[in-house]
Nucleic acid binder design. Structure first.
Lengths: 346, 346
DNA sequence: GTGCACCTGAGGTACGTCAATCAAAACCGG
DNA sequence: CCGGTTTTGATTGACGTACCTCAGGTGCAC
C-alpha cells in the first residue's frame, strides 16, 4: 500500500542547488534579493531533479482564493441562459477548489454601459474576468485597463482580438458557418432552390462571420442553392414570424432555413404553419431547450453548437492558469464545433 | 487583495458539532469507535455549516499518490495509438496532480491472455485501473476480482456492463451507428443503390452494435439504399483491398461505404483505384492521422469519433473520484459522439 | 460496584509550501 | 581593510487535514 517514488520537494531542491530553503523560496516566487548566479544555480537544479511545485500545497500555504467574475449579457436569451446555468453548476465545484465565481450581467446592446460595468469592477477584489461582450472600442479599452490592473482576462464565446485579453475561449464563427453550409448543401443534394437565413441582428460579429463562412461554402460548392439576404428580427418575435411567413410565400422553393442566432421559437412557429416542402432542411445554432426539443421533434435537422459546460470550465481553467503563471494545456482548451443531430444528442 | 468568506474547516465543524477534532476526524474518515448518535451529530453539523473537506490538504497530509494503470490492446492500431499518446500527454499533467499513470499492453485477441494480465496486476501497488478490452467471461471475472481487492475500475471505450466496473467512459455504439446512418442516408438523398460496410472483425462488440444501429436507421428511414453484409478484413490489409475491389466490381451502384473499425488505410487504397460514382459517400469511425488526412483530402466525408483527450482525462478523473469516495460530476464525464467533417476539423 | 469494553478528548507531528524575521556572510568601492 | 550594502542562511509558524497516542469518560453486564 505504499511505494511510489517520492516527488522532489523544495528541500531536495535546496540540497541539490547547495543553497538554503529561504533562497529557493525567493527564487521560486521571484522575490528580489538574489544574485543572478544563484538564481541560475537553482533553476539548473530544478531542471536536473525535475522539481515541480506542488500547487495545492502552495495554495494552501498562501491561503489563496481565486476570485473570478463572469460577465454575461443580461436579458432573455436562450443561449445565455444555458451558459448561466453552466456557470452555476461549475461554481459549485469551483468553490471546493478555492475559487469564488461571480456572475455579472451587462446590458447587451449599449457599448458604453458595457464599458462602464467593466470599468466599475472592483479590480482589487478580483483575480480574473471572463467576458462575453461584442467588441467595441470602449470594451477594448476597458479590457486593456483590466489587464493593466493585473487581472487575467479571457474573452468568452465572442473574441476580443484587438484587446489585450489573455485568451479566447470559444469557436471560430467562420468555420461554424462553413460547417452549417456543408450540412445544408449535402442534406439538399440534387435540389435547386433558395435558402433562407434568419438572425437576430447582423450587427453582431458572430452573425457576420457565420454568414460569411456560410456564403463562401454555398457559393463554392452548392451553386444550385441560392442564399437569400438575412432576415433580422431585432429581438421581436412577431417580426420574425411575419418575415419568415412572407419569405415562404414569396419564394415557392425555399429548401433550407439557416438560423444564425436566437429567435428560434418564433421561427419554428412560423414554419409550423407552412406546408412541408420536399427535403426542407433547418439548421440552427446553439443547443438550448428549444433547439433540443426541435431536434427531437424533427423540426430542426442539425444544430451547430459549442458545449457550454466546456466553455465555462475552460474559461475558469485558463483564468486559474494565468493567475498561477502556469502554461495552459492548449488541446484541452480548444472548444470544438459540435454538430448535433437527433441521433447523437446525448 | 483579501476578503472572501473563509471556508469552514474541521475546527469549525468540531465546534459546531460540539465534539473534539479527533472525533470529527474519525467520523470523516469513517474510522471505527464512534457512536451512531455522535456520527449523526457530526454529519448534521456538516450539512448545517456546509463543510466540504479540502481534498488537497487531505492529500497533502496523507501523502497520497494515486497509482493508476491503463490497460490497452497492444499491436498496431491507429485508434489505440492516438489513445496511447493521449495517455502520454495526460500523465505529464497528472504527475503534478500526484498521480502516476502506467500503461499496460494486452494481447488484443486472446481473452485468456487478457484475463491473465488483469489477474497478474499487483493490486497492492495500484489504486485504480482503466480497461479497454472486449467483454468476455474471463475479463468479467478478472474485473470483479480487481473490485474485490478494492481497486477503482472503469471500462474505457468499450463497456463491460456485466462486470462490477464502477463506470464506463465512452460512447454508445448503437447511437454511433445510428448517427453514421443518418449522415449516410441524408448525404445520399434521392439516390438508390447499395451501401458497403467494412470492418476489421464482427466479433467485436463495438462492430456488432454499430452495425445494429446503422441497419435500424437505414431500413427505417432510407429504404432506397440497401446495406450489404459486412466485409471483415481480420487485420489483413491485402484482404481488405481485395474484398473492397471485388464488391465494387460486383455491384455497379455502391453509393456509400461505412467503415466501422480500423483498416481505413487499405480501404482508401482500394477506393482510389475505383472510379468515382455519383455522390459516393464514405463515413468512417475514429479520428486518427489517416482519417484526418482523408477528411482533408475529401476521401472521407464524415468521421464519427470520440475525443481521446476527453476519454483519458475523464477516465482518470473518475478513478480519482472513486478513490476519494467522491461523487462524480456526470455531465462532464459524458463522452459525446463527435461528427467531424472537413469544416469543423479543429 | 467492579470490570471491561467502548467512546471521546487533548495534543502532537507531519505533509509541501509560503512568508517573515534576524543574523551571518559575502561583496564592493574607496 | 573599513564600513556599508547586498545576498544568503537558519528558523519559525502558519495553511487544512491525517493519523497516532494516551488518558479519561461512559455505559453495560454481571
Amino acid at each position: 500500500m505504499k511505494a511510489a517514488i517520492p516527488k522532489p520537494t523544495v528541500h531536495d531542491l535546496a540540497r541539490e542547488a547547495g543553497v538554503s530553503l529561504a533562497t529557493v523560496d525567493r527564487v521560486l516566487n521571484e522575490r528580489p534579493g538574489v544574485r543572478e548566479k544563484t538564481v541560475a544555480r537553482v533553476k539548473a537544479a530544478v531542471e536536473r531533479i525535475g522539481y515541480v511545485r506542488d500547487t495545492h500545497a502552495a495554495n494552501l500555504a498562501r491561503r489563496r482564493q481565486y476570485r473570478f467574475a463572469i460577465v454575461l449579457p443580461e436579458g432573455p436569451n436562450q443561449f445565455v441562459d444555458t451558459l448561466r446555468s453552466a456557470v452555476q453548476e461549475a461554481s459549485g465545484a469551483q468553490f471546493a477548489e478555492r475559487a469564488l465565481v461571480e456572475m455579472i450581467p451587462i446590458p447587451s446592446h449599449d457599448p458604453h454601459a458595457v464599458a462602464r460595468t467593466l470599468n466599475g469592477l472592483n479590480t482589487a477584489r478580483l483575480d480574473g474576468v471572463a467576458i462575453m461582450a461584442p467588441e467595441t472600442p470602449q470594451v477594448r479599452d476597458a479590457v486593456d485597463r483590466l489587464k493593466d490592473e493585473g487581472l487575467a482576462v479571457v474573452a468568452l464565446v465572442s473574441d476580443l482580438p484587438s484587446s489585450a485579453r489573455d485568451f479566447f475561449v470559444g469557436i471560430n464563427s467562420f468555420a461554424a458557418g462553413r460547417t452549417a453550409a456543408v450540412l445544408m448543401g449535402r442534406f439538399l443534394r440534387g435540389l435547386t432552390g433558395h435558402i433562407l437565413v434568419v438572425t437576430n441582428t447582423m450587427q453582431a460579429r458572430d452573425s457576420i462571420e457565420r454568414r460569411f463562412g456560410f456564403d463562401a461554402v454555398m457559393a463554392d460548392e452548392f451553386p444550385a442553392l441560392e442564399v437569400l439576404p438575412s432576415i433580422e428580427s431585432h429581438d421581436d418575435p412577431e417580426r420574425m414570424r411575419r418575415c419568415v411567413r412572407e419569405a415562404l410565400a414569396s419564394y415557392g422553393d425555399i429548401r433550407g432555413i439557416y438560423s444564425m442566432g436566437s429567435g428560434n421559437t418564433p421561427l419554428l412557429e412560423a414554419l409550423r404553419g407552412a406546408g412541408d416542402l420536399e427535403g426542407r432542411v433547418v439548421i440552427a445554432h446553439e443547443m438550448t431547450p428549444v433547439t433540443r426539443q426541435a431536434l427531437l421533434d424533427g423540426e430542426v435537422d442539425a444544430v451547430i453548437t459549442q458545449n457550454v459546460g466546456h466553455l465555462v470550465r475552460s474559461a475558469l481553467r485558463v483564468l486559474r492558469a494565468r493567475c498561477d503563471g502556469v502554461e495552459i494545456f492548449e488541446p484541452q482548451e480548444r472548444i470544438r464545433i459540435d454538430i448535433v443531430i437527433r441521433e447523437n444528442l446525448t
